[in-house]
Each structure stands twice: as structure tokens, then as C-alpha cells.
Design a protein around this nucleic acid. Structure first.
Lengths: 340, 340
DNA sequence: ATTAATTTTGCTCCCGCGTGCAAACGGCTA
DNA sequence: TAGCCGTTTGCACGCGGGAGCAAAATTAAT
């Protein structure tokens, strides 16, 4: 009795079963589930009904295997301490799914793990890899591209010098100049730049740009502090260590932070450990405009990345068959609030 | 010249190619890439070398198709405004990957979308589905199970009455009683419970438990306020509306929040909009122990879920072939800080 | 050395669906 | 009604690898 297992576990209902039920061939059934298929409305309806009754769902593994397009993209992420990651993930996953892409999420533990993560992805034959981590420097990318099994390798929200890579990011240089100008205009004169991890070549140009620009235009050389990860707690520790005990005159008048994660950590410490007021004693700027930045507690002056536009562009790139240079920089927006 | 495309795009190097290169059969090659395979160390080495040279990586789609085990689990998430989600995702993805599970991430937009999300997952023939959202009430689950294509449906960090579902969660009842007792011991007498969305049947027993327990043991009936999502900003708005303008005597002396997301939003508003001190004017407790809870700014008294233990248990459940009742409640831990 | 017990290898037959083409169908005109 | 042309349908074959067994190669036992 081979017909009796329907009720038990619907796992093995295949297009053949539906074909028999609907009185058409298997290929007609498959066609009914592809959007570009040439099929009469009559048989489409028959297939629909039969499939419904049997609980048939096409097997994308087989489809992918046969067609060599998986409609799967890998999303490689590290840096889970940064609240901005949640926002990026939400935006990306929503838009990717809307366009029919499924997402393989890979938590990349550390820099050495990146290779394994890429291997993971290639075993599933993903159509593209999206990197939104901090550990993917040019060296890692080269290794990845060496064993290239993906048609596209996209660095999201970060630039890369690697020519085989597609980078979709905000224009850091422009942004930092705008921030530098704003900071100076508001009368701040002794900025301290709070930077993230100084990994080999993760091209976040914010630190360099700000410092160079400030030196060239406003004379003095800003101090820089570096945190080993974009983790508010870590950032707080570094800031506390660096500033505690300094006389008022030796304190910076503003902390320019590489992103909001650092800015938030710094804010907490400045208020609650150093007992200083923001912005009266020390002002702060961030970068990213995470949700909390707008909240009553931080009211952080920061720079908003146009994440939706960037994600929309990303899916366009994914859908494109051309082989041109897709790198693109987006312009963000300075969000002036109360912290600076 | 069929041998010349190696350099171009390594996408189509198959076990056959490696077999030819290594001088063995295709099946030996495949065996070399399976951990349980019976293969001589000699040929394993030959295959390793050949595979390395050709850049061969086994195709998991094909493997999955042939073996009917995909080693893929779907992770369905909504509620991206809750910072705790990031922590859960980090913990889950790390441990799942360590155990060899790949993850299909599905952002479930709204309740009606849950069905599509499940469909998504079943098309990839995932071995299990993990739900860590708030929209997956019993009705949605029933629909999901009706078209059951997954061997396991796991609700993480939330209980469910559905018997066909595996729920791995913290013991809310025990936890809330502990919190209630603590709150009372510390001398608070007019608690306000700040609850999340009151969806049909998402069994988070925190609200009921606290209110019932308090009424029975300490006499009065606590007020309850409900927020439409676990979103700090939303929570802040609700709290401000409810408390602004009340005379001091009509204010609660403590806000017991269903989770930290709400507690954080409430904290910000109480301090910065209502101008009250925490815990002197109003105390606050949370639930989850998100990273920020420990930070200098919030110092939130909250309840820590043993996420790592829960995730470890989850992978054990995934690996198990038995068909018994895997539901399990974990005991968490009250983290006493300064907010209450 | 010879036979029996094991391990290793090769092989046939699938897994479920897409590709590309040929056959069948339908509608329309003359 | 025959003749044409465009649309639907069916089909052989392939995608890359797993299960399970039989043949071959080792190893152990007598």
C-alpha cells in the first residue's frame, strides 16, 4: 500500500504524485510552480487543486541542483555586540525575502573562522555572499575569492579595495568631513576620535578622514582612542581609563565616535562614571543612527546611513546578470540632536 | 577542450573530476568527505590532494537531496526591535554552526506572513524550524503543523500549549514569583506591570503570574499596561502617556516589566521626560538581562535566561532521533542591580 | 599457506526537478 | 476541411551525490 503514507508525513509528496492526481505529466506540474512557465490556465488550475489536496510543495534543493541557481544568499556576520547589526539584518532580510532570496545566516566567530564560513556557504552553492562583518579584511577576501564558488561577493556597509568584490557603503569620507565641519562650527576645538578595532585593512575611512581633515583645516591634531570591538561595554572601559583623573583642561570637548555602539558606551561612562554632563562638559557624535540614538536617553547627534536604499540597491545587484563594476557609495544624513 | 575551465569558475568541479584526478572511483571521493565513511587512509589522502588541487567542495544540495537530511534549520524571527533578539541569535547561530547545522534565516514580517515563512522553509526541506518570534501563536502553529514538512518545530524562549511542538523556555512562572517576592521584600507596594503585546495565545505567563501571585499574597491588584510590541520607543510612549501628570501618590513605586526592551524604554522616559529618579521615585525590573542592562546607564535588576544552556539543549534535541516529549523549562537567575 | 573474517571499493539505482526539443493541440484562415 | 502557425505538453537526459549491496582487497586465524 504505497498510497497510504500521505497522512503520516507529507515529506515525500513529489511532483509525480501531483501529476497523477491532476491527470497531467510531471513536467506540467513543475511548470505550474514556476513563474515564467508556459502553461494553460486550465492545467494550472488542475495542478493547483491537486497540489493543494496533497499538500505538495516543490523541492528547492532539486530545483537548484538542476538549474544551477540556488536563490540563496549567504549572510556572513560577526560583531553581534553592535546594535546596528540588528537593524542591518532586519532591513536586509526583509528586502531580500521580498525579492525571493532565501538567506543562509552564518555567524563568523573570528577572523580565522571566516574561511570556514565561506566554505559553508559554497557547499550550499549560494548565488552570492554578503559580508557585514568587521573581520573580512582584504586578505580574507582574497582567500575567499581564490576558491570562488559564488558569482558575487558583496561587502555591505563597508568599502573594500578588492576589485573582485562589490562594495555597497555609505560615503565615509564625505560623511566625516561633514561631521568635522559641524563639530568645528559648533565651537568644539579639542576633539577625541574614538575608533573601532584597527584591523589590518578593514577600510573604514572614518578615523583617517576625520583626523586628516581636522589637522588640515583646523590646525591641531586630534587624539585617537581605539577599541578592540564595536562593543559599548568595551568602549566604555577604554574611555573611562583614558579620561578618568584628567584635569578638566586636559579633557577633550567632544568625542567623535566611529559609530553609535562606541558612542553609547562612551556616553554611559561619561555620565555615570566620570560624572560629566553631555554635551556641556563633553559632547558626543556617533555614526549609524541606531534606534536608541533617537531615544530620550541618548539624543545622539549621529550620521544616518540610508540602509533601505542600500539594501534595495543590493537586491538590484543580485538580480543583475551583467558583469560590470557595481561598487557604490551612498550619501547619508547628519542627524543633529542634543549630544553635540 | 573540456578540461580547461577549471581556472575560470570553480563552480562545476564534481566528485567525478576529483575521482579521475585521484585515480579512484567517484564513490570513494564522496566517502572521503563524509565523517562516518569507511575509507582507507591511503585513498583518503589521495582524494584530499586531488580535491585540494581542483578546488573541489561537495555539493550539499545534492547530498541533501539524496539523503533526505538537509542539515539545515530554519530560524524564524520577527520582532527585531528587541535587543534581546540579537543575543539570542548570536548564541543560537554559534552553537548550531558548531554542531554542523546551517541556518536559514527568515524574517517574519507579521502574523499573516508566518505561513509564507514556513512555506519558505519547507521548500528548502529544512530538518527543523526554530521559532523565536512573538507572532507564532497556537493558531499559526496549527497551520504550520498541518502542512508538516519538518520533523521538528521548536519554540525557543517561549512556551506553547501545542503538543506537537517542542518548547524550550525559561520557567516564567517560577521567575515571576521570585521577582514578585523580591519586589515585595524590598518594600515596594504599588507595582505596575508593563506587558508586551496581548496577542491571542502567545503564552508568556509573566503578566498573569505576577498579577495573580501579587493579588493572592500581597493583597492589592497591580495595574497592568500593555505595549503593542517589544520596542523600547513604543514602551516609552505608553509609559509617558500613562504616568505623565499623575500626582506622586498615584504613581506606582515600581515598574515590573515583561522584558528588558520594555524596561529600557520605560527607564529613559521616566528619567528624561518625567524627570523622576530610578529607583528612588520609581524602581524598575526587567527580564532577559540584555547586555545594556548591566551597563552603567541602566544597572537594571532583571532576570537572566540561561541562553547557552537552552541553546545547547536545543542542538541535543535536533540531533536526537527519538520521538519523545522534548519540552523543557529552564531556571534562570535574578540579577540584582541598582534599578530596584 | 590456505581459508575465513573484515575492511575497502565499485556499482546500480534512485533523490526531485530543469533544459531543450519534438510531438500534440488549438485556433484561424482560405 | 485542409493547411498553417503559435501555444502546450510530454519526454529523454542530466544535475551531484547517497544507500545498500556485491566484488575486490586486506587482514586475521588456523
Amino acid at each position: 500500500m504505497p498510497e497510504d503514507k500521505k497522512s503520516a508525513f507529507a515529506g515525500n509528496i513529489t511532483a509525480d504524485d501531483v501529476a497523477a492526481e491532476a491527470g497531467v505529466s510531471r513536467w506540467t506540474v513543475n511548470r505550474a510552480f514556476r513563474k515564467d512557465a508556459s502553461i494553460s490556465s486550465k492545467s494550472l488550475e488542475k495542478v493547483r487543486i491537486a497540489a493543494e489536496r496533497l499538500g505538495y510543495v516543490p523541492d528547492l534543493r532539486a530545483a537548484s541542483l538542476a538549474s544551477d541557481r540556488s536563490n540563496l544568499v549567504a549572510l556572513l556576520i560577526d560583531d553581534f555586540a553592535n546594535p546596528h547589526k540588528l537593524v542591518m539584518m532586519e532591513r536586509l532580510t526583509r528586502i531580500l525575502r521580498r525579492e525571493g532570496w532565501d538567506i543562509l545566516l552564518v555567524n563568523t566567530l573570528d577572523r580565522d573562522d571566516a574561511g570556514h564560513a565561506l566554505l559553508n556557504a559554497s557547499q550550499r552553492r549560494v548565488d552570492a555572499v554578503i559580508l557585514i562583518g568587521i573581520q573580512f579584511d582584504d586578505e580574507v577576501l582574497d582567500t575567499a575569492l581564490h576558491a570562488r564558488r559564488f558569482r558575487k561577493l558583496i561587502i555591505f556597509a563597508r568599502t573594500s579595495r578588492n576589485p573582485n568584490t562589490i562594495s555597497i557603503a555609505v560615503d565615509d569620507v564625505h560623511a566625516m568631513k561633514e561631521i568635522a565641519n559641524y563639530v568645528h562650527e559648533r565651537g568644539y576645538r579639542r576633539p577625541l576620535f574614538l575608533a573601532g578595532p584597527r584591523t589590518s585593512s578593514a577600510h573604514l575611512l572614518r578615523n583617517e578622514t576625520f583626523v586628516d581633515y581636522w589637522r588640515q583645516h583646523f590646525g591641531n591634531e586630534p587624539e585617537t582612542l581605539s577599541v578592540a570591538a564595536y562593543d559599548p561595554a568595551l568602549a566604555g572601559g577604554i574611555v573611562e581609563n583614558a579620561l578618568a583623573g584628567r584635569p578638566k583642561s586636559a579633557l577633550p570637548d567632544i568625542l567623535v565616535c566611529e559609530n553609535d555602539a562606541l558612542a553609547i558606551g562612551a556616553t554611559d561612562v561619561i555620565r555615570h562614571k566620570l560624572g560629566l554632563r553631555i554635551p556641556e562638559d563633553i559632547a558626543i557624535t556617533g555614526f549609524d543612527d541606531v534606534p536608541q540614538a533617537e531615544g530620550a536617553n541618548y539624543r545622539l547627534t549621529t550620521y544616518r546611513q540610508p540602509l533601505t536604499d542600500m539594501a534595495e540597491y543590493l537586491v538590484r545587484v543580485l538580480g543583475s546578470e551583467e558583469d560590470r563594476d557595481f561598487d557604490r557609495l551612498f550619501q547619508g544624513k547628519l542627524m543633529v540632536r542634543d549630544s553635540a
